[in-house]
Design a protein around this nucleic acid. Structure first.
Lengths: 311, 311
DNA sequence: TACAAACTATTGATTTTATCTATAGGCATG
DNA sequence: CATGCCTATAGATAAAATCAATAGTTTGTA
C-alpha cells in the first residue's frame, strides 16, 4: 500500500471515473487503473464495482476510502509542520539571473515563495553571465541562476535542470514542412538571434556551428536582448529563431504549431544554481532551489539523451 | 514521502540507532539510511542529529516523528477494516496437499489462518499428486497444493512459489568437502530417496538423471514416505539425501552444516494452488493463498535462475 | 593523543516498481 | 447491432528500492 494508491482511490471516489481521476492526478488512465488494482490485490478486496456506470465503491470500499481520506489528511499535516517552520526563514537573499531564464522561472515561483517565506526579502537582478560571476566573487549577491558549466574554480555549480532548445519557425519557412529538424537545416540568413553579451547567443551560434555563409545579403540588422522580441519577429514577419523549452509553456495552440523539435540528441543547456565555495544563507538558498525544482517538469531534471551546448 | 520511509524514521526514533532500526525493519542499514536521507531531502529538514551518539531527533524531527506515528496508526486501521470483514468468511474448505510440502507450510500458517477466519473449517488431507487430481476432478476437495505443471486441462494452476532442492550430506561423504555441488557429483549408491508414489521421488531421480549404476551392491533397502525420516538416516548413519528448501527453516546450526547447495541454475520445483476451472469458494481459497504467500520468503516467489524439474 | 570498536554514509550492481503508449475488451445507448 | 465511452492488458522504458562491499566518523579507552 502506498500513499499514491490511496490518493488514486480517493480521486476515483470523488470523480466516479477512472479517466477523470487519472487526469486530476496527472497520470494516464492505465497507470491509475493498475495501481488501484494493485491496492485491491494487496488488501484482498474489491474497492470499486466497475460493472456499474459510473463506477461506485463497494460496501467495504466505502469504508476503506473513508479511512484513506483520514490518512491523507494526517499526511498533509506532516507538510504543514514543515511549512510552519519555514516561516522562520528570514533575511535578504540576493539573486543574479540571466535574462534568457528569468522570465520563464521567476514569475512562476515568486508568489509561492513569498507566501512560504514571508520574512525573506528576495532581491533579484537580471544580469549577463559575466556580471553574475563578478558579483558572486565579490560577495555582492548570494547566488546566481545561469547556464553552466562556467569553469570557475571559486564557484560551486548545482545543476537544476537541462533545458532543450527548440526552433520556432514561421509558416512560410522551408523548415515548417519538416516534423523534426537538424541544426544543419537552419539557414543562418533567416535566423533571428540575441545581441552580444547573452550566453544564449553563443549557444545558438554553437548549435548552428557558426556556418554564417557569405552568400546572401542581410537586408537589415536587429539587436535585442529579449527572446520574446525574437518570437514576435517570427510571428509577425518571418524567419526562424531558437527558443528554450520553458518558453513554450505559455504558448497558444497557434504558436505551438510553429515549434519544431530537434532530432535526438537534442541540443540543450544546463541551468545551475551557482554560489561561492564558502557561502552562507544555505537554508534560504536551499529553499529557493526547492521552489525552482518543484516547478520544473520532471523530464527536464534528467541529462540523458541531450547534447549539452557550452557557452 | 512513502509509508515505508515513515516506518523507518519511527524505528530510528524508537531504537535510537540506524543499525538496529534496520534490523527491526528487515532491511540493511544502507537501505534504511538512504530512505531516511531521502525523506529529509523531500521535506527539506534534518530529522535526526547523527553527530550525537546515540542519534537523537532534531527539534522539528520530533514533531515529524510524532505525526508519522499518527499516520501509521491510521494506516493500520485500513488493514483492520479488512480483517473485521474477513471474520465473515465462513464454511468448510477442503484442501489436498502432498506430504513433501505439507509439514513445511501448514504448521506455520494454520494458527494465523484460524485466528483470522474463525468461521472457516479447514479440512486437510495429505495425499499423493494422483489422488489430489482425482479428488479435484470429482469435486471432493476445493483445492490442492502440489508440484506443477500437471498438464491437466480441466484444472487451473496458480503458482505459489518456486522451491529449490538442496543436498543434505553426511560428514563422511565425499560431497561434504565441496562448497557447491553439481547433480552429477551425487553417487546414487549413497542417496536416500522416498518410496514410489511421491512426485518428489521422481523429481529427485530426474535431477540425478536416473544414472543408477549397476556396479556396487545395495546392502539394504529402505522405504519411507517421509523426508524427515530420510534426513534422520543421513544424521544417524551416513549417505546423502535431497531436501526441499523450506525443510531448512527449522534446522539446527549443526544440521545446516550438512547442507550443500547446487550450482546455478539450481534444481527447483514449482508449487501451485490447483483448482477446478469453475470453482466456487473463491474468497476462502484466495484467503488461503494469501496466507501461504505471506509466509513464503520473497526470493522464492521468483522463477528466475531456477531449473524447474518436472514430475 | 592515538587506537579500536561501533556507527553511519557512499558506491555500484541488481531487482523491483511505476509509468507511458498503444491496443484490446466490455457495456450501455441509440 | 453498431457506436462511443470506459476500463483492462501488454510491452517498453524510466525510476526507485534494495543489497553487498567499503569508506568515513565518532566515541570511549588506554
Amino acid at each position: 500500500m502506498t500513499i499514491v494508491q490511496l490518493e488514486y482511490i480517493v480521486a476515483v471516489d470523488t470523480y466516479r471515473s477512472f479517466v477523470s481521476a487519472a487526469e486530476k492526478c496527472f497520470v494516464t488512465q492505465p497507470t491509475l487503473s493498475m495501481q488501484v488494482q494493485k491496492l485491491e490485490d494487496t488488501l484482498g478486496v474489491k474497492i470499486f464495482d466497475r460493472t456499474k456506470q459510473p463506477v461506485v465503491p463497494t460496501e467495504i470500499g466505502n469504508d476503506i476510502i473513508a479511512q484513506a481520506r483520514v490518512m491523507l489528511s494526517e499526511h498533509q499535516k506532516i507538510k504543514e509542520i514543515i511549512s510552519d517552520r519555514q516561516k522562520d526563514l528570514a533575511g535578504e537573499l540576493k539573486v543574479g539571473i540571466i535574462p534568457t531564464v528569468a522570465p520563464y522561472i521567476l514569475p512562476k515561483i515568486i508568489n509561492q515563495f513569498i507566501a512560504k517565506y514571508p520574512q525573506v526579502k528576495l532581491v533579484v537582478w537580471e544580469q549577463t553571465t559575466e556580471q553574475i560571476i563578478q558579483q558572486l566573487k565579490l560577495g555582492m549577491i548570494d547566488c546566481g541562476i545561469l547556464s553552466t558549466p562556467l569553469h570557475e574554480p571559486q564557484l560551486t555549480e548545482t545543476p537544476l535542470f537541462y533545458e532543450n532548445f527548440v526552433a520556432y519557425v514561421a509558416k512560410n519557412s522551408h523548415l515548417a514542412k519538416k516534423k523534426n529538424i537538424n541544426p544543419d537545416d537552419i539557414n543562418m540568413e533567416e535566423l533571428w538571434i540575441l545581441n552580444e553579451g547573452h550566453c544564449m547567443r553563443d549557444q545558438v551560434l554553437n548549435i548552428c556551428q557558426r556556418r554564417k555563409s557569405s552568400k546572401g545579403f542581410q537586408h537589415f540588422e536587429y539587436n535585442t536582448g529579449s527572446i520574446e522580441t525574437l518570437k514576435r519577429m517570427v510571428d509577425q514577419n518571418n524567419g526562424t529563431t531558437i527558443l528554450p523549452e520553458l518558453a513554450l509553456v505559455d504558448l497558444t495552440e497557434k504558436q505551438l504549431d510553429k515549434v519544431r523539435y530537434f532530432k535526438s540528441p537534442e541540443p540543450a543547456r544546463e541551468i545551475s544554481l551557482v554560489t561561492q565555495k564558502n557561502f552562507i544563507k544555505r537554508r534560504m538558498i536551499d529553499a529557493l532551489k526547492a521552489e525552482v525544482l518543484e516547478f520544473v517538469p520532471k523530464r527536464m531534471k534528467n541529462k540523458k539523451k541531450k547534447d549539452l551546448i557550452e557557452i
